[in-house]
């Protein structure tokens, strides 16, 4: 599964994207796996209320299913315009 990071999430983790081998069934399970990896991931995912997530380019909740998902993206609330 392709995992993307944007804005300060990208900066904290130090990567714009990576391929992740996972059996996580939901976004929350994926977050738990990533948090357990290294300090920089734990830091990036320390406050989920400051984060948004998109699965296959649709914004979803952290309880969303990852069944058949190809791409998951984590980012702060959007600030365009």
């Amino acid at each position: 599964m392709r995992v993307l990071y944007f804005a300060w999430v990208r900066e904290r983790i130090g990567l714009p994207r990576e391929e992740v081998e996972t059996s996580a069934q939901t976004v929350a399970e994926l977050v738990a796996e990533l948090r357990g990896r290294e300090e920089r991931y734990a830091l990036a995912f320390s406050d989920l209320s400051a984060l948004r997530v998109a699965v296959d380019q649709e914004v979803v909740g952290f309880d969303a299913s990852l069944t058949a998902a190809r791409e998951v993206a984590f980012f702060p609330p959007m600030t365009g315009g």
Binding site: F6, A54, M78, G80
Partner: peptide, 22 residues
């Protein structure tokens, strides 16, 4: 667009860079 289009702004001043809060 402000709340749903995936853009993020980072401002740079003499004190460095910071991400703009929603």
């Amino acid at each position: 667009l402000k709340t749903r289009a995936p853009f993020w702004k980072k401002e740079t001043t003499e004190h460095g860079g910071h991400w703009v809060d929603a």
